[in-house]
């Protein structure tokens, strides 16, 4: 079997259970990794599975099908807590990438600089993993286990991203940051979501930073410290100790020291972005 483009999930899962096979959705990571070469390996192309492309409510959860493209996410009707995700969607490559690149592929590729991860951490996202033997749901933090490593078993497909509706309150903001305006692999990404109570104090907070550790991290100590503060005080609250769990590296894009500094600045700006949300 060289190329399969099944029309049903059941068929796709059956193939996954029987073959050692590369999974392709948008192809925007798969093909670049094989530049200059003929692609001749067994491939399961998921794009015929229209059932995996939907974005919608499902009980008390928002379900984003794994094949939802960034363009579809950007245009979907989602609560304000997902605005960070929609801001990320329009920063993934150029339009050509956004039109075919999928949220499922972004998570399975599990780059430290995956644009989808920080915004999904803000909304307590889980992933739905399916195989012929059943379905399991993992929190995103459990799914992304390390540098370009996930908890996906070889017979499983990531079928959906699940977002609890209760985690989509308040306002969110995302900043992707690199050395040029478009087509950037992030130096640092930062996102935040704040729920502000009627009295103007922060009732719930999420903050996440990407490209500064093997897997994007939530800044839980900062989230705790933000609770009860006036919304306008959020950015001022950010201190170096809140970013201690980050482990940025030196690479062609920036130095580790720079990333630390920039992460702090961008977290503040993301918090300001939540507060000044239109």
């Amino acid at each position: 079997m060289q190329y399969a483009n099944p029309a049903t999930l059941a068929k796709a899962l059956e193939l996954m259970s029987q073959h050692d096979i590369s999974v392709v959705a948008g192809g925007t990571d798969f093909y670049p990794a094989r530049a200059g070469r003929t692609v001749d390996e067994p491939v399961l192309d998921l794009t015929g599975l229209s059932e995996l492309g939907n974005i919608g409510a499902s009980g008390d959860r928002i379900r984003i099908g794994a094949l939802a493209t960034w363009t579809e996410i950007a245009h979907a009707a989602l609560p304000d807590g997902c605005r960070a995700l929609q801001q990320a969607a329009v920063e993934v490559g150029g339009r050509q990438i956004q039109n075919v690149g999928t949220i499922g592929g972004n998570l399975c590729n599990s780059s430290p600089a995956a644009d989808g991860v920080p915004p999904l951490l803000l909304v307590d996202a889980s992933v739905e993993l399916m195989s012929v033997s059943g379905v399991r749901t993992l929190r995103l933090e459990e799914f992304l286990v390390g540098y370009r490593r996930t908890a996906l078993r070889s017979d499983e497909l990531l079928t959906a991203v699940l977002i609890p509706r209760e985690a989509t309150g308040g306002h969110s903001a995302f900043i992707k940051f690199g050395s040029r305006r478009h087509l950037v692999i992030s130096i640092v990404m930062a996102g935040a979501r704040l729920v502000v109570a009627d009295d103007g104090t922060i009732a719930d907070a999420r903050v996440a930073v990407g490209a500064c550790s093997p897997v994007a991290e939530r800044l839980e100590a900062l989230e705790q410290d933000l609770l009860g503060l006036a919304a306008g005080e959020a950015a001022g609250c950010v201190a170096n100790r809140h970013l201690e769990m980050l482990s940025p590296i030196d690479d062609v894009r920036a130095s580790a020291d720079y990333r630390r500094t920039a992460a702090r600045v961008l977290v503040k700006r993301a918090l300001d972005g939540c507060v000044m949300h239109p």
Binding site: G27, V43, R95, Q96, V100
Partner: peptide, 22 residues
């Protein structure tokens, strides 16, 4: 590698990089 966009075409009305499209 999908980095330059020179190969962009439209598939069913949507812009895609033809170098990353099977």
């Amino acid at each position: 590698t999908g980095d330059c966009g020179a190969c962009a075409v439209m598939v069913d009305g949507a812009l895609v990089n033809s170098c990353t499209t099977p």
